[in-house]
Amino acid sequence: MMETLEQVRDRLLARFPGGEVTLIANPGPAAQHSLALGLNQAAAMALFLRDDPDLRLDYCSNVTGVDWPEKEIVESTKVTVPDPAGGPAKVVEQKTKRIQPGYLEVVYHLYSMALKHGPVIVRLRTGNRHDQVTVPSFTPVWRSCEFQEREVFDLFGVKFSDHPDLRRILMWDEFTAHPMRKDYVEPDDYEWEPTPHGTVLEKAKAHYPATAVAAPTAAVGAAHHTPAAAAVTTAAPVVRSDTGLETRATPAPKEGTP
């Protein structure tokens, strides 16, 4: 049976004095807790995890990134304020806002093929989301990280020092953004479709403002237009419908009844 994560943490701390290892609890029913490693000694710690005879985590199954953007957290604390007039002290709720700094996280799921145990989950956290995004690569320790770390670099923008071949893997080389970040904005490449709604409707309005109005009565019956056709027909007086873009005819309320 594998030792507990607390024991692993204590052994890591004993082996690497001055190193940082934090146990991150997982509140969910899965209870897969994890260890966050400090970046300065992470690679050596990973090597220890792989080679230690009791752990022998020789197999790194899954490498992935997680984006945690900056979050505004409102905390309310109760403060007793003494009444200046000499009455009983009042309890006032004070709200403090603080910005929880954002960071990127790389998560490794380690197993042992030799001893058939696991997972030990290891996390590396960057300093922030824009300039301190370098973490040590684990590719020298486990070859399986090679493509997966490239993917994290590509989609999240985490840089891995010591990675032998850090290039984009899924997006093309000229691409500049990191699509899996939470604040990624998709390129404005709307293609006309007949029933836009939700966010697509917003895009549709931006691209085809002329059709973002209901069809004139002359066009009723022709259910759907291509954008060009609809643009021509808007010369007649128009009524803006609820949905904005549709050029469809609104059926009479009694339709379908004899």
């Binding site: 029933t195 709604h197 939700g198 697509v200 949905t243």
Partner: peptide
């Protein structure tokens, strides 16, 4: 894939 589009009626029948 968000392929359904519904507008419901204002009246009842």
């Amino acid at each position: 894939p968000q392929c359904i589009y519904i507008e419901k009626s204002k009246d009842k029948k």
